[in-house]
Design a protein around this nucleic acid. Structure first.
Lengths: 222, 222
DNA sequence: AGATGTGAAAGTTTTCACAGCC
DNA sequence: GGCTGTGAAAACTTTCACATCT
């Protein structure tokens, strides 16, 4: 998970950059961001770590620690400027950019993800849809034409795809992941069950529907 | 998160039961389970923590620690009996039972979850579909008729629903969650963005599509 | 007074490393 | 020799509590 091109043997150095943020912190920042967007209805100038914490379901100390990794955004005695903080957190998360997303897998799940409004709203634009089944080719989803996955490589040439969403059947997962990696894409959001083997330079996040529900059945069984 | 009905003030006691398992451990057990099912193709009698670890993307010590919480399943020098271990892990997770699941939200995402084969295969049967939009009422999905969410309470009477999958629009999330809680359901798998406020006796697991992709944009931005 | 930012403490999770059994 | 099960160590994360600033 070390960043590519970093000088070796620097494990001990305090680090000028801001790699101290764990995945857990980033996940919480996303929650804070959502709360901040929702809170804009309140028309409050400022928001305290306490309020932000309650609405996100964490402790106020946690909020302050998370934010302090990236800067001193608050003002003692006052709290955080709500609008500014929303912008700052959005900036940290890389929102407010246009992310070019390709979806592989045009089944039920793929269709749902394609239609999901939350993505576009935050700058994630699904501009390509591919499927492993040639029978789906040329079907139109809005103004996007479904193409065979063999065309992924050409579409991604020149870094024209930032993120691939994988929503193919389980047995195709690794094969398609290999194609994605070969095409030079550096980020995968994987809905296909199972661990993907990819080079360290490629970031993968997993959303596993079965694991989520199994955790519930464990809790109910106890 | 404390179990309902537990005597108060027992925080310090070592606990005879097996509550030592964190959500992280349970999540990994699900991965192990999947790997074990896949590995049955190999027709190997035994499997070592090393192999199981490689295929699940964790360390072998982690596998052994996770399993040792629940029992001594392995044999020193040999490894684990693959078939038995699959059954044991399945048992821990509460699989191999018939779980009665209701889906609330018959949009694109709801449809995809309804069709998702991974659920049924592991004993999660979506037997009811509800929607907040009355226009959807009476539509048929397979042999399941979509009903207005007002009928949820009656359907859940007498503990006839184990788990509710929430896939409604963001602004309906808390309202429907309240209805679910009132109906006596004790587990929610929530696909709706945002934190739900529910009593501690109700288990909630979150699957947040936006948070998953934002974590990628953070990593790409760094 | 009110609320942040942050070292230090507490708690949790993971890894190490090896005794003990096959 | 191979591999588990597990205390102990290390690493990581969260909470505490308070100096610091408005």
């Amino acid at each position: 998970m070390r960043g590519a091109g970093a000088p070796a043997g620097d494990k001990r150095r305090p680090e000028l950059s801001m790699d101290r943020a764990s995945v857990a912190t980033i996940t919480r920042l996303s929650s804070y961001y959502r709360v901040l967007v929702e809170s804009e209805r309140d028309r409050q100038q400022t928001i305290s770590s306490k309020v932000l914490a309650e609405r996100s379901g964490v402790s106020s100390a946690q909020v302050r620690k998370d934010l302090s990794i990236f800067g001193n955004f608050g003002r003692r005695g006052l709290g955080y400027n709500a609008l500014q903080l929303r912008e700052q957190v959005g900036h940290i998360l890389g929102l407010g950019r246009h992310w070019r997303v390709a979806l592989v897998g045009a089944g039920n799940l793929g269709r749902a993800l394609f239609a999901y409004k939350g993505f576009r709203k935050q700058g994630f634009h699904v501009e390509h849809v591919f499927d492993v089944d040639p029978a789906k080719t040329d079907e139109l989803w809005g103004d996007v034409r479904i193409r065979p996955v063999s065309e992924l490589r050409a579409a991604a040439a020149g870094n024209r795809i930032d993120i691939v969403i994988l929503a193919v059947p389980a047995d195709a997962g690794q094969k398609v992941a290999n194609m994605v990696v070969d095409a030079g894409v550096r980020a995968i959001l994987n809905f296909t069950p199972g661990q993907l083997a990819v080079p360290a330079a490629v970031a993968v996040r997993y959303v596993d529907l079965s694991i989520a529900i199994e955790s519930l059945s464990y809790t109910l069984t106890k």
